[in-house]
């Protein structure tokens, strides 16, 4: 039994009343879910809140998960992604009304400094960032990403292509240097 099948089996056990199964699902999926949310937001406390909220939602609405419709991992990532977008939009709205709530951000990247991959990913448009994070770091298929982000598969392909191109452009200098080695 591979890991994905094991997660799905655990979820079925949880739906059938085995509460310890949720703890096991949490142990299995927490690291990848946290990594995704953290790489997207770069906010540790927000990422912790979102992971906890996603599992609370999974616990509360466990009967809504249907293993025939998709993998548990995709279902949980979809839940977390939706919660994250809602929370970030709400935050943006509050900050436009109350600018003094805007936290101190790290200084703008000095152009003389080398752009790190972290900065380059952070500078990607939100929609492209989600696609590249899911595809590269979480080995999701384009079908899974389409399901999580609720977009057509063709859109996933084009966003992935654009994101790769943008990252190459952002890290342009380094690409040229690596090519000359």
């Amino acid at each position: 039994m591979n890991l994905i099948e094991r997660e799905d089996q655990l979820m079925i056990a949880f739906q059938n009343g085995d509460d310890t199964a949720l703890e096991k699902i949490y142990t299995l999926l927490k690291p990848s879910l946290y990594s995704f949310v953290y790489r997207y937001t770069r906010d540790e406390q927000l990422s912790i809140d979102l992971v906890q909220d996603s599992f609370m939602k999974l616990h509360r609405y466990k009967q809504y998960y249907d293993p025939n419709k998709g993998k548990l991992k995709s279902y949980l990532f979809q839940t977390a992604y939706r919660l994250m977008i809602t929370k970030l939009n709400r935050r943006k709205k509050w900050r436009s009304f109350l600018p003094f709530l805007t936290p101190i951000e790290k200084g703008e990247i000095d152009h003389a400094d080398r752009l790190t991959i972290r900065d380059a990913v952070a500078r990607l448009p939100d929609k492209q960032r989600a696609v590249i994070l899911l595809f590269y770091y979480h080995d999701m298929t384009q079908e899974d990403i389409a399901e999580i982000l609720d977009i057509p598969k063709g859109t996933v392909k084009s966003r992935l292509h654009k994101a790769i191109q943008s990252l190459k452009d952002e890290l342009g200098g380094e690409f040229h240097e690596s090519g000359s080695i």
Binding site: L22, E23, Y26, K30, P31, Y34, S35, Y38, R39, E44, I48, V51, Q52, F55, M56, T116, I117, R118, V121, Y136, Y137, L167, L171, E174
Partner: peptide, 15 residues
């Protein structure tokens, strides 16, 4: 380059 970005997962409870 993408592999260079490691994330430390903090220890926090589910609830």
């Amino acid at each position: 380059k993408l592999d260079e970005d490691h994330v430390e997962v903090p220890d926090f409870p589910m609830n």
